[in-house]
């Protein structure tokens, strides 16, 4: 009976470094940031004088931050459904026993393998609207296709702003939803579809009544992952647009970065970070609890 005890100790020892590291670098650091957000630390010199919620009050009064919150809500609200819908449609198309399925799938998914900075640089120039001297990028393409009326200022137009970033982000991430849905479609038992067809359901009916309900869990988890990516949006905006005219492409992560590491206002930066954490938690925690319950039951 000595062996199991020793093994138990060894198992804990194997886990210990990671547990400590996670405890410190995730939970400890979040606590530290939370505390820093309640202090007066507004220069390179740390100043841990407690000031209560003053940094948060200030933050909500700053127009730039109000715009950022609106932007990130707009972005997330467009990005998730666009990725899901595009991903679902592509998956359904690929599910029709097409030739070259592997090639198509690879093409739809490859943007995920490259850095958001690369995406940002490419789309920065593609969506450069051009000047009086002539249209650039996508605008030039639209001109060439006789669709000149669709030309616009993209990310340089404050009315479009963050929505132009959705195009680039959707390009990068919709393949993810496609891959998820395709895996889901493949796991729908053929007999179920056949049964529905025998019951007189058309192809659309099969999707509506059989396939879609089975894909609901996939939609949920894909939406959560995409939502988390959306709320943390940073590198793409930095490399593609910066804060934009009138902060029309600004996001909390960029404001946090500039506040903290450019203006050295650490307490304010920590406050933005904590609010970002709250936003993500509102999205993810219910999902994790849900998943965790399933795990235990399983």
């Amino acid at each position: 009976m000595r062996r199991p005890t020793r093994d138990r100790l060894v198992s804990l020892a194997l886990l210990a470094p990671s547990v400590i590291v996670i405890a410190v670098f995730v939970y400890g650091f979040i606590a530290f940031s939370g505390y820093a957000s309640l202090t007066r630390w507004d220069s390179l010199m740390p100043d841990f004088t407690f000031v209560g919620l003053r940094n948060y009050e200030r933050l909500f009064a700053i127009p730039r931050f109000q715009i950022d919150l609106g932007n990130i809500v707009t972005f997330t609200g467009l990005f998730i459904p666009i990725c899901l819908i595009v991903g679902f449609l592509l998956a359904v198309l690929l599910d029709q026993r097409v030739r070259g399925e592997n090639l198509f799938r690879s093409i739809f998914l490859f943007p995920m393998a490259i850095s958001a900075v690369v995406t940002g640089v490419a789309w920065r120039w593609m969506l450069d609207p051009g000047t009086a001297g002539g249209a650039h990028g996508v605008n030039a393409l639209l001109d060439g296709a006789g669709l000149g009326f669709l030309k616009n200022g993209w990310y340089t137009d404050p009315a479009i702003g963050i929505k132009a970033v959705v195009i680039a982000a959707g390009w990068q991430m919709s393949g993810y939803a496609m891959a998820m849905y395709l895996a889901g479609l493949r796991s729908v038992p053929q007999e179920l579809r056949e049964a529905a067809r025998i019951d007189g359901a058309g192809e659309l009916g099969v999707y509506r009544h059989v396939v879609l309900p089975l894909l609901r869990p996939i939609t949920l988890s894909a939406a959560i992952i995409l939502g988390q990516i959306a709320l943390n949006l940073f590198a793409l905006v930095v490399s593609m647009t910066g804060p934009g005219p009138g902060f029309s492409t600004d996001v909390p992560a960029l404001f946090m970065f500039e506040t903290t590491f450019r203006a050295s206002n650490f307490a304010q930066g920590a406050a933005i970070a904590m609010l970002m954490l709250v936003l993500v938690a509102l999205l993810v925690v219910p999902y994790l609890i849900h998943t965790f319950r399933h795990e235990v039951r399983a």
């Binding site: 650091f29 979040i30 943390n232 909390p252 992560a253 970065f257 903290t260 970070a273 954490l277 993500v280």
Partner: peptide, 15 residues
């Protein structure tokens, strides 16, 4: 551990 997958890294940058 899994929660560490989801946190915005901004919340740990300063420390």
């Amino acid at each position: 551990f899994l929660i560490g997958l989801f946190i915005p890294y901004q919340s740990v940058l300063i420390p």
